[in-house]
Nucleic acid binder design. Sequence first.
DNA 1: GTTAAAGTTGATATTTTTTATCCACATTAA
DNA 2: TTAATGTGGATAAAAAATATCAACTTTAAC
Lengths: 134, 134
Amino acid sequence: MQLTRQSEYAIRTMLELAALPYGELLSSKVISQRQDIPEDFLKKTVHLLSLGGLVSTQRGTQGGVRLAKAAEQITLAHIVAAIEGPIAINPCLAPGYFCPNQVTCPVSPILARAQAALLAELNKQTLADLVKQA
Amino acid sequence: MQLTRQSEYAIRTMLELAALPYGELLSSKVISQRQDIPEDFLKKTVHLLSLGGLVSTQRGTQGGVRLAKAAEQITLAHIVAAIEGPIAINPCLAPGYFCPNQVTCPVSPILARAQAALLAELNKQTLADLVKQA
DNA sequence: GTTAAAGTTGATATTTTTTATCCACATTAA
DNA sequence: TTAATGTGGATAAAAAATATCAACTTTAAC
């Protein structure tokens, strides 16, 4: 029932990027050093963020990573989803799951609401808000 | 970011027990058969529920497991906590954790609120409510 | 008392997931 | 041309979750 460490890496990375002037690049290497994250692992993490449309990358000398959209439009929920996929606190809430148990399972609606409440909180503040606070 | 399968086993077990007349025993063996849960694993799961004060057990012939308190006083949050320990969606929210990162981490308050929202939903309905619905 | 049913406990194995590492490759600015 | 950088795949290592096994204790039933 926990965020993975990789999600945490991703959050810290996004905070680094959001603290920069918009559009500015920062290399994975530098981020890994500043945030004490294994470089190769971070590279993959950044790649996931990229696939999720949260950052864009630039190869080559002086390349790096930057936000792909304004920090005002990014929330923790987006970041976690980019890393871990759609948040599902139980397999039975995942898209396309067929429950092998009783037809009328009283639990999944509750889990669904709990999950929704969790997501709502993770969406309440933007990355921009977070950077302001830090 | 998921409940463990063991938590799910525990929930299904508690639903079985709550469907019985209050105080009635059901053996782990029968529960494991009805719910298709490995028996030895379920025994340990039941033991955790017992340590958590949610069920009481009775050894010997005709022994078994029963609710230790009224189903009206038990929620999903209690069950999950009995199995997984205090719910903490990130290590930094666990009791006694010291964060090695920046002093003013803007993330943990959000995670804390998200976690609280999750817990609130898991506490909204009692086991008794669930049994009624099923 | 004896016995069989049931929970207790600890060791260990298996499987899955997560985290980390390594390296060959593609791209690109300098 | 070259060095810095992201890409991608393979693999390893570590951790966590799940499952199995087996000896033990308790206790109701006979």
